[in-house]
Amino acid sequence: MSVRGLLGRVKRLEEARLPRPSPFVRLFGSFATFEAKCLEEMAEGKLAGDFPIDCLAKWERDGTWASAEGRWR
């Protein structure tokens, strides 16, 4: 195996170890953007006032999404 091949393999292994972004980060670029949009829509009455944004924020902070995504792969 060539050095270039080994470097490619190491890169893939390192990338596989990185935490996976949550669905919110994939769709909105960051959880903060998603949260701001939700809060705005809640204030406008477009989204239910009891939308569980606090729970989703906790899951984002504690890595729940990353561990769940790992099980789905």
Rank of each mutant, 00 (worst) to 15 (best):
M1D: 08
S2R: 14
V3P: 05
V3N: 11
L6F: 08
L6T: 06
L6Q: 14
V10P: 01
K11I: 01
R12C: 15
R12F: 12
R12E: 15
R12Q: 13
R12I: 08
E15V: 10
E15R: 10
A16H: 11
A16M: 02
R17W: 03
R17I: 06
L18K: 15
P19R: 08
R20M: 12
R20S: 03
P21C: 10
P21V: 08
P21D: 14
S22A: 03
P23M: 08
R26H: 01
R26A: 14
L27D: 02
L27S: 13
F28P: 15
G29F: 05
S30R: 03
S30F: 02
S30W: 00
E35A: 09
A36W: 03
K37I: 08
K37P: 04
L39G: 08
L39F: 01
E40I: 00
E41H: 14
E41D: 10
M42L: 12
A43M: 05
K46I: 10
K46D: 10
L47Q: 04
L47W: 05
A48Y: 11
A48P: 06
D50I: 01
D50A: 07
F51K: 08
P52W: 00
P52V: 04
P52E: 01
I53N: 02
I53H: 08
C55E: 03
C55S: 06
L56K: 03
L56W: 00
A57N: 07
K58A: 10
K58D: 07
K58V: 03
R61P: 01
D62Y: 08
G63F: 00
T64M: 10
T64C: 11
T64F: 12
T64K: 12
A66N: 14
A66D: 15
A66C: 10
A66G: 07
A66R: 12
A66P: 07
S67E: 10
A68R: 15
A68K: 15
A68W: 14
A68H: 09
A68M: 09
G70L: 06
G70N: 13
R71G: 00
W72T: 10
W72V: 13
W72G: 11
W72P: 01
R73K: 05
